[in-house]
Amino acid sequence: MNTISNNTDFLLSIESLSVSFDGFKAVNDLNLYVDENEIHVIIGPNGAGKTTVLDLICGRTKATAGSIKFRKKELTQLREHEIVREGVGRKFQNPSIYEDLTVFENLELSFPRGRSVFGALTFKRDAEVTTRVREIAEMVFLDALLNMQAALLSHGQKQWLEIGMLLIQDPELLMLDEPVAGMSVSERKQTAKLLNEITKGRSVMVVEHDMKFVEDIAHRVTVLHQGKILSEGSMAKVQADPKVIDVYLGH
């Protein structure tokens, strides 16, 4: 594992990051690094600042202080869509898909081409797009449902669709906020398999509460508590950490 001294080799390096809402420090002087091809899971009790960290990376929340460097490029000054174009994808806690459109159209809109107004007007649904949409749909177990209106999908399928919408963007860093919340046991297994598959060639950051699931997927775990890092390392290591047991796992 890398050390802080050669941090430029990291895909994402967050340094001295803070954000406060009306004086409340949701994230406090945080340092966090994500390696290439790593599944990095953030856990912690409610209100630890897990989702806020993801919000800060993807530009939804503006940092009060600190830096977020992605491939040595500073993200804190960029707008959301610019961060996406740099190669950072974000999945929300509740499935965030276009319910009035079909599965195919959902994936097609996420295909990274024709993103300007004029580009969207002249966008052609050519073989490249259809092939890619089918490929991704197959990966997220939705290839038989391409023409279904997205509102009619089950909760788990909606989660997969959103993951698929991110995959088609081909981001280098994929951020997933509670990807298996509300999923059945078999759906969880499939999702774990999916995540292990898609991490080839990209890094994944996951916020998750489900410890069984975290064990299945995590390469590295960061435990957040009150906006600060409580413990970091392999799942076995953090599980054995008395501080973690005290504030989080012990409950």
Binding site: C58, R60, R79, E80, H81, V84, R85, G89, R90, F92, S96, I97, Y98, E99, D100, L101, E105, E108, L109, S110, P112, G114, R115, S116, V117, A120, L121, T122, F123, R125, E162, M165, Q169
Partner: peptide, 23 residues
């Protein structure tokens, strides 16, 4: 055009459109 579907998408889930790389 794709813009027509994007309009519906913006109406449904503005944030998702933004986080799919559109302004």
């Amino acid at each position: 055009s794709k813009l027509g579907r994007l309009l519906v998408a913006v109406r449904d889930k503005e944030d998702r459109v933004r986080f799919s790389g559109y302004d």
